[in-house]
């Protein structure tokens, strides 16, 4: 047990180190692509806490992503905030809205939970369109020049530099992975899995399962919002596309593909899916066909995803 835990930690750190080393050899294009993928991977990490560990399938996580995106972007655009303060603000707002939505939506479960989250997210999406005087609607807003660099700890950070963006994203991803890793291997993780496996029994053992689920929801929503804020600030654009149902589906797909309930699964899923769609879009405009086919194949044949299947087959020690 002690041994496997050590090798598992080594694996996680190894993956992050590999991503760091990659930054030296990647072409411009792949560096940019992987930056994007890593942001989406943070989003998927967040999603996975709810879906993979607590067993709650949300169809509305785009609303948290968009929440972070707008909470970071709007103050920058209208109030001239600096990037770091906007980022922190977005984290707080995301946590707050996740608490609020969780408190309402968690009264349902199963299919009802899926539909309720889908509808809440649809309302959020429509709201970004309806308040287009503020949000810019479909057209979106381009963040102003002053938000393309910021000073922190006496260092000037230039967000127009691809390398800088890569390292910032990698830093955030590493932090997220390590936090999630600690949580799922600690007390909270055991509580989550207990709820997933048998909520009734957990409740009878004296746990407040609603609170356990709410806690997971808040962490999940906050990570998703953080990813949204990162995306908006790094690429200086916020728009309602990010709130659309497509983003809720994508993150589900990343998680399912990589393996729900594994820390590295969502990251792997993001990489495979992103590159697959990129590849397909070179051949057909109907590249979302890949999304559909992969979803069906996964749910019918590999509901555990890549890492989940590996873990089951070879009894690996992946957390």
């Amino acid at each position: 047990m002690e041994n496997s835990r050590k090798s598992s930690l080594v694996l996680h750190i190894g993956v992050l180190a590999l991503l760091f080393l990659l930054s030296f050899i990647l072409s411009d294009y792949h560096q940019l692509t992987i930056t994007r993928i890593m942001v989406l991977a943070i989003f998927a990490l967040g999603y996975n806490i709810l879906f993979g560990y607590v067993g709650l399938l949300s169809l509305g996580h785009a609303m948290f992503f968009a929440c972070g995106l707008y909470a970071a972007g709007l103050p920058v655009y209208y109030l001239g905030w600096e990037v770091p303060s906007a980022f922190l603000f977005a984290i707080v707002i995301s946590a707050f809205s996740a608490t609020l939505i969780g408190a309402i939506a968690l009264r349902t479960q199963g299919v009802a939970f899926m539909i309720v989250t889908l509808m809440f997210s649809q309302v959020a999406y429509l709201a970004t369109l309806y308040f287009s005087d503020i949000t810019g609607g479909d057209e979106g807003l381009v963040l102003p020049e002053h938000a393309r660099s910021f000073a922190i700890l006496g260092m000037q950070v230039d967000l127009t530099s691809p390398q800088t963006r890569y390292y910032i994203t990698l830093g955030l991803l590493s932090a997220s992975v390590l936090i999630v890793y600690r949580w799922v291997n600690g007390g909270p993780g055991r509580e989550w899995v207990a709820v997933r496996e048998n909520e009734l029994r957990t409740r009878m053992l004296g746990y407040n399962t609603f609170l356990i689920k709410l806690k997971a929801m808040v962490i999940s929503g906050t990570l998703s919002g953080g990813a949204g804020a990162t995306y908006g600030l790094l690429f200086a654009y916020i728009g309602s596309t990010f709130a659309s149902i497509q983003y809720s589906i994508d993150v589900l797909l990343f998680t399912l593909l990589g393996g729900a309930g594994t820390v590295l699964g969502p990251i792997l899923g993001s990489f495979i899916m992103f590159y697959m769609i990129d590849f397909f879009s070179g051949y057909t405009t109907a590249y979302l066909l890949a999304t559909g086919v992969v979803l069906i194949l996964l749910i019918v044949y590999f509901p555990l995803g890549v890492l989940g299947t590996l873990r089951k087959k070879w009894r690996l020690w992946l957390p």
Binding site: M114, L252, A286, G292, L298
Partner: peptide, 29 residues
Amino acid sequence: ILRKINHNPEATIVATIGMLYVIQQSVLI
């Protein structure tokens, strides 16, 4: 598709989302 997953309610939602894309994108083509 759906028979293979025994019409499990949650899996069916995911599978029909997949079908949504397959149908929509095939029509696009």
